[in-house]
Amino acid sequence: MIDGIWSQVVGQPEAIAILRSAAAAAASIVDGSGSGSGMIHAWLFTGPPGSGRSVAARAFAGALECATGRGCGECPGCRTTITGTHADVRLVVPEGLSISVAEMRALVQTSARRPTGGRWQVVIIEDADRLTEGAANALLKCIEEPPERTVFLLCAPSDHPDDVPVTIRSRCRPVALRTPSATAIAEVLQLRDGIDADTARWAASVCGGHVGRARRLATDPAARDRRAAVLRIPLHLRRLSDVFECADDLVKTAEADATEVSERRDDAEKEALKTAMGYGGTGKGAAAASRGSAGAIKELEKRQKSRATRTQRDALDLALVDLAGFYRDVLVAGSRSTAVLTHPDHAADVAKAAGAWTPESTLRRLEAVLACREAIELNVKPRIAVEAMLTALYRG
């Protein structure tokens, strides 16, 4: 297993080799011991969902800030970068549906400063495909003429590469990640998270190559229950009424997940903002401060609503990915292929469906699931999209 900070990056030996070499070149620039050939100021990490794009970016950022230049994982630069507390490493995680131009302009302005205590000023942008046109243009200007000691690390899914403007992609060095193997995922679950071998192997085999999903399935009984409920749907659609019951369950579960994630955080954010704005105070000027805080609170609530919408969509999309995997497995079983199943623990249900459905009807069902994912991404109401999909699944 790879040591140091790179142990965080699962199943990506080729990418690690590239990043290690670049980190060494960056260290030679800071130390004045070399030309820094191989180190550039803008990187684009791409890969399928769950491949660890942001994890790889954080590990690279830690190596850039590492006192040894190798990513030892022990020095303050490495530790504070991984924990998210390094003063010169900024992480942009879009909580809503997009990254606004105002947010990007503020970030670009900050990134122009020299490092305060570290070796580099590092900006990590998760889901760079969510940049609005204005935000992309603001970032482009900074990437074209980057500050001397600033590095931009952009992350984007490889299934939608065109969502990152070509003007930005052409100025970044690409780092392509792949889906990690089940063996690599199981190993990291055991060594890093202390999960027993049987559970780790099971979670790794059913997570679809998504390291974070494997960890949730291995440690969270509720996540396992939600997955099991989704995979019961294909063989449960016996009557038209089942369509609406299953649609209601899917949407309500996604809404509940979004509420659970957002509720506590929303209240804490609102109270913190009110306190900062002097809301509820009794001293001189308190009334004016309270009136002035109303606009800021309204803006915060708008961002929170957008974040909740994204969280709900993500939870629903995860269920749809599991459904798509089931129908893919049915096609695999029906063709007598030796390909590995997405849901090996549901092989009996897959075999039953393969014996009952024609390949054509299975393919239509799979296409219905994929169409539902696309419809939700295009802002179709989730309930309408899900009911249309389940009706198609029922009809076959």
Rank of each mutant, 00 (worst) to 15 (best):
T275P: 00
V369S: 00
D198Q: 06
I2K: 08
A371M: 05
V230S: 02
V251G: 06
V251R: 05
A353E: 04
G77P: 11
T68N: 09
A25F: 09
L153T: 00
E377N: 11
E377K: 13
T183F: 02
A347Q: 11
A56W: 08
P382L: 02
L153F: 04
H343C: 08
F45Q: 02
V188Y: 06
K302P: 01
A247D: 12
R79S: 02
A218L: 03
V123S: 11
S54E: 11
A247L: 14
T358M: 02
G118Y: 05
A308R: 11
A17I: 03
L390V: 02
K298C: 01
L318C: 02
T199M: 09
T81P: 12
G194H: 06
V101I: 15
I195T: 04
E133C: 07
A214Y: 07
F45E: 01
E374L: 11
G280M: 15
T362V: 12
V30I: 13
E74N: 09
A247M: 13
V93R: 12
E245R: 12
L378Y: 08
L370W: 11
A368S: 14
D248A: 15
A287Q: 14
A356M: 11
I2G: 00
I16H: 09
T358H: 00
C72H: 08
S262Y: 01
A67C: 03
E260S: 13
R310Y: 10
H346T: 08
A27I: 00
V55C: 10
K284L: 14
R169P: 05
R201N: 13
A296T: 01
R226N: 00
A353M: 13
F45P: 05
A59P: 04
F45S: 01
R20Q: 15
T282G: 13
L217N: 05
A102S: 14
A388Q: 09
T85N: 12
G396S: 04
T358F: 01
S158D: 11
S290D: 15
A351Q: 12
P48W: 07
G77W: 09
P161A: 12
A258W: 03
A229P: 03
R53C: 13
V350R: 07
L237T: 10
A128M: 09
R303M: 01
G280C: 14
Q121R: 15
G73L: 03
G38N: 04
A354I: 01
L390D: 01
Q8W: 11
C75R: 06
